[in-house]
Amino acid sequence: MKTTNPVLARLGQAAERERAAGYAPAGPYGQPGYGQPYPTAAGYPAAPPTVRPMSIDDVVVKTVTLLGILAVSAAAAWTLVPDALVGVAWIGALVVGLVLGLVISFARIANPALVIAYAVVEGVFVGMVSKAFNTVYPGIVLQAAVASFGVFFLMAMLYKSRVIRATPRFVRGVVAAMVGLFAVMMINLVLALFGVNTGLRDGGALAIGFSLVCIVVASLSFVLSFHEIEEGVRMGLPQRYSWTAAFGILVSIVWLFFEILRLLSYFQGDD
């Protein structure tokens, strides 16, 4: 199975090596793992165990698990963090979540503990931001959540019916747009810390347009995740990579939620 995605290609090659070597995580009593030979009997080499490939169901279960963890973490932060510490918790969770997200994304680490830690930290961030917005605009958080999952399921149906296809040109375009938007948001954040208002987040026409662009790109990023999952299943990637696939969906949902939350707030007006 060939793929145009270099990351998936590398993961597929790693999966082939693991299957050839008989990969199995090392246990507490020295069971075979990386670099450890499997026991033999009567002079005959034992057949290596089969590495269970990931499935769509694996990704669904992991995604639901991460969303549940994020929701619990967000609810706990909303309830337990005092109003005076909301800003500190907000910024702290933003920084830690950004670092964890970059590590997982660029290193392509299929580490459940790291992905779960990201979900917990991101939950704190979601809880703090949601609490701040809901205080000013009651009910806006529920509206944004419903809209976000509505867009997710819509994109899933469009991808399944092949209305939208992840062609190489489409993938390159969406990735370029995501990188560009991330760079713009980081620059805008730094300038905001120094009191410079670029107009991207002040509720004006430029802010509305920017949020709409972000919502479109965040929605299209689901197609990239669906494509990677489909290709990963076809290539027989090990089951643990379902955590990485679920992480990608989680990031897109959270990003989409915040952009919809901002856009709705622009039309609420000041109370």
Rank of each mutant, 00 (worst) to 15 (best):
L224N: 10
L181T: 11
V190P: 01
R201N: 14
P49L: 06
G195A: 07
N197G: 00
G30C: 09
F257R: 06
I91S: 14
F170C: 10
G209V: 10
A74F: 09
D83Y: 05
V129W: 06
F106I: 12
V196M: 04
V120E: 07
Y137L: 04
A107I: 02
M178G: 15
V124K: 10
K2L: 05
E259V: 05
A117W: 03
W243R: 04
A176V: 02
F149G: 05
A47I: 07
Y23G: 01
L80W: 15
R162P: 00
K131I: 02
R234A: 15
D57C: 02
S221A: 15
V171Q: 13
A76I: 14
T65Q: 13
V115W: 08
A93Y: 11
L80R: 04
T167I: 06
G97I: 01
I164C: 05
W255R: 13
A192V: 00
F170K: 09
F257T: 08
M155E: 11
N197T: 10
G35N: 13
I69M: 12
K160Y: 08
G269P: 08
A76D: 02
G12A: 14
S221K: 02
A183H: 07
L154M: 09
R108T: 13
L154I: 12
A89N: 05
V174P: 03
V216E: 07
L66G: 06
F222R: 04
M235F: 02
D83A: 14
M235P: 00
R169Q: 14
R162D: 09
N197E: 15
I116T: 14
